[in-house]
Each structure stands twice: as C-alpha cells, then as structure tokens.
Simulated scan of single mutants.
Amino acid sequence: MHLLIDQGNSRTKACLYKEGVFTDVVLSELTPTDWLSIKQGLIGSVAAAEQQQQLQSLLPASLAVRWLRSTAQAFGISNSYQQPEKLGVDRWLAILGAAALYPNQSLLVIDAGTAVTMDWLSADGVHAGGWILAGLHTQQRILVSATAQVEAAALSLHPLQPGTSTTAAVAEGAKAAVLGAVQQAIQLRRIERVVLTGGDGAFIQQQLNNNAVLLEPKLIFYGLARFIDNN
C-alpha cells in the first residue's frame, strides 16, 4: 500500500494506492492500523513552505516519504523548461499521468483549479511548453477585490450567454476567458486528445462537448503512482 498526496494551493487530496486501485482518504481519519499498512508516501506539492510543514506534521515520523520535484526527464517524457525544476510539480505529474494513460499520443493536458494550466505533449514524449491563467473562481475573486460594487456569482453550468446583471456579467466573463483560452490552445497545435483534471475540469468538458476531451479526476495521482519504488 502506498499513500499518494496532491497538495495544491487551496486544498490537499490524498489516496491509498494498491495494485492499480486508488482509494480516496482523509489523512486525519487514518488509523494507526492504516498507517502500519502504508509502505511509502509520495507527495507532489505546490503549496507554500508553511503548508508543506503542516502536511509533514500529519505524517508519522516512521513513514518513508518522498517529496517529488519536476526533472528534465522521467519515463521517456522530456521537460521543455531550461530550468526543469521551475515547472510546477503538479503540471509535471499531470503530464506524466496523461502520458501513462494515453501513450504515444499528442495531448493537451489541462488542470483547471485555482489556476488553469495547459501543457502540450507530443506523441514522442516531448513537452512543448504551456500556458497558465487564473481559474474561473480566481478571476472572479480578483475582479471583486479590485472593483467596487461587484459581487461574485456561483458557477453556472449553462452555456455561455450575456450576463443581465453585473454579477452575472463577471461570472460569464470568467467562463468566456477560460473557455476561449482552452479553444485557442486546442487550435494552436495538432493534438489527438485533451486530458482534463481539476475542480473545474468537468465544467470545461461539458462546455466543450467534444468526444476527444476526456476527464481524468485522478490524473495527478496517476503521475504520482509512476514513481512507486522508482528512485
């Protein structure tokens, strides 16, 4: 049994992995017996150092833990960054997870959360770079904090339409910005599949309504799992 942890900017997700099966868990609810069954912990974190320390404090001192970082190459995949470690490890793990699920295919890998990240991967495993933009809810928060008399709205699942109030206009504008960027990314380079993950991944998939757009909620965990017993 292995413990896989994806620590983002806004939340931490964890699962237990055994023989190809991912089981969601809450760290604070794991029992002493559970901890004894875990061979190793693998962590991908983009959180601040203080948050990483808080996470470390939740783990038994006896547990072998590996904090993963982005590298120049892994599992036949090449990182395009001149300083590979500067690529967010969440993006790197999503790329590695997508490559494992859809090998030898040209992919656009999208993680839609606090930020929306988009990364292109060629069929021969070369990362071509990516884009980063504010996520749907982040865009609304930024505008609300910088503008008087503007309020954020809950995310609606209906297709894009003009907003008939300032609140609705902000929400629709955020949707338009993200969906427009995704559509531009799809057109920019030849790809066979779009692989989505993140909290707003299902929303983007629904809005695009394209059979080549696939949702993989555990994409980063697939990337983490590739490092099991690999040093």
Rank of each mutant, 00 (worst) to 15 (best):
Ile191Asn: 00
Ala72Lys: 15
Ser37Ala: 13
Leu208Ala: 08
Ser57Trp: 07
Ser10Ala: 14
Ala148Pro: 09
Lys18Gly: 01
Leu107Pro: 03
Pro32Asn: 06
Tyr102Gly: 05
Ala99Lys: 00
Gly223Gln: 04
Leu30Cys: 11
Glu29Ile: 02
His2Val: 01
Asn79Gln: 03
Leu215Met: 15
Pro103Ile: 11
Arg69Cys: 13
Ala185Asp: 04
Gly88Asp: 09
Phe22Gln: 08
Pro32Met: 08
Trp67Thr: 08
Gly173Val: 10
Pro84Glu: 05
Lys18Tyr: 08
Ala225Asn: 02
Arg190Tyr: 12
Asn231His: 14
Gln149Lys: 07
Asp229Ala: 15
Ile5Tyr: 06
Thr167His: 08
Ile191His: 03
Gln205His: 10
Leu30Phe: 12
Gly201Asp: 02
Ser145Phe: 07
Thr114Asn: 09
Leu87Lys: 02
Ser45Gln: 05
Val46Lys: 00
Gln205Glu: 13
Leu68Ile: 12
Thr71Asp: 10
Leu179Val: 05
Val25Trp: 05
Val150Phe: 04
Pro32Arg: 03
Leu188Arg: 14
Asp24Val: 09
Gln184Leu: 11
Leu179Glu: 10
Leu101Asp: 06
Leu68Ala: 11
Gln206Arg: 13
Ala94Asp: 00
Gln73Leu: 01
Asp111Cys: 02
Gln207Leu: 11
Ser156Ile: 14
Val89Arg: 01
Val178Leu: 13
Leu27Gln: 02
Ile38Leu: 10
Ala153Thr: 12
Ala14Ile: 06
